[in-house]
């Protein structure tokens, strides 16, 4: 443990240089959302709970047939979530809404990956196995995945599911936005091709926002004046219109800030060009040289 003056100045020089070249601190965080990507608009006032979208999704993505595929009644008795066998599921909610005969009216809600504009999972993924591509789809590359499940921790919509029963090669499973279909001209995601009530509208996100705005304006009594997904966590590719409060149909109330904004800002302002570790190394080296300058090096090694 010897430190000489020469060592010390060399280290301090490196630290100083690194501080000099670092970019202006605190450069603002910027969204990485692709311009004019695709999205889907789900109109819950149109959905009748036929579950055809579940069936189409399973078929297109090579997943097992949905649970009790033709059941449109008792299947709704339990609240289901997307899992490793199903990228999308439809749930039924009684929210207190009644018809003119005081009969409770159900609201059906399809749930799947929202394909956030600035996805928390993409930011979190240790190896970049999750990416947001130019179609708007959040894609998963199993060849990079190590199975840390940080994406699942990060997701504000509780969407990624895991193959917990596979001991060696488990995968993260979630809606793909059918990216190989929608990246082709005129291609639609499986679920959107089949919906009999046109509750699912596929298109450019900007167009969908106009469509949604028009529906709200033309029929204000039918809807709550809110496009869910326009601003939630910085915006999502999948967006919802509803006649009942969104939190009652399992669409959580979320802030407008993208989830990764704070963590990425902290990481980049601290570690861009590794300026802070290098500075700390230099300072500690200086401290070490100062405090040990009169010492004969103690028994070497044996830290």
């Amino acid at each position: 443990m010897q430190i000489t003056r020469r060592h010390f100045f060399r280290v301090m020089g490196a630290a100083g240089a690194s501080v000099a070249v670092r970019p202006p601190a605190g450069h603002a965080w910027q969204s990485n959302a692709p311009p004019d990507s695709f999205g889907c608009l789900v109109d819950l006032t149109r959905c009748v709970g036929c579950r055809k979208c579940e069936e189409a999704c399973a078929e297109v993505n090579g997943l097992p047939e949905p649970e009790r595929v033709n059941c449109q009644c008792t299947i709704f008795e339990k609240d289901r979530r997307p899992d490793h066998d199903a990228y999308t599921v439809v749930n039924r909610y009684y929210t207190g809404k009644v018809d003119e005969f005081d009969k409770p009216v159900p609201t059906f809600a399809k749930v799947q990956c929202m394909h956030c504009q600035d996805p928390a999972c993409v930011s979190a993924c240790i190896v970049g196995a999750l990416t947001k591509d130019e179609t708007g789809a959040v894609r998963y590359d199993v060849t990079k995945c190590i199975g840390c499940r940080y994406c699942m921790v990060a997701c504000p919509f509780e969407i990624p599911a895991y193959e917990y029963s596979d001991p060696i090669n488990p995968r993260v499973m979630k809606c793909t936005f059918c990216y190989d279909r929608i990246s082709k001209e005129g291609g639609l995601p499986g679920c959107a091709t089949i919906c009999p009530t046109e509750a699912i509208t596929f298109g450019r996100r900007s167009t969908l926002l106009e469509v949604a705005g028009k529906r709200l304006k033309d029929n204000p009594a039918r809807y709550l004046p809110h496009i869910y997904g326009e601003k939630e966590v910085g915006g999502t590719s999948w967006m919802y219109l509803s006649g009942v409060p969104f939190e009652q149909v399992n669409l959580p109330t979320l802030p407008e800030n993208p989830s990764p904004k704070l963590s990425e800002t902290v990481q980049h302002s601290l570690f861009t060009y590794l300026w802070s570790p290098i500075l700390l190394f230099g300072v500690l080296g200086g401290v070490m040289a100062w405090f040990n300058k009169n010492d004969n090096p103690p028994d070497k090694g044996g830290v």
Binding site: A124, I126, V127, G128, C145, I146, R149, Y150, Y162, D166
Partner: peptide
């Protein structure tokens, strides 16, 4: 804990500088 234990070396080659876990 990680699902694909054999793949633990992958972060050395696939870098995501946005990921806190990577650091």
């Amino acid at each position: 804990d990680i699902g694909r234990s054999w793949a633990i070396w992958k972060p050395m080659f696939y870098w995501n500088f946005n990921s806190v876990l990577f650091e």
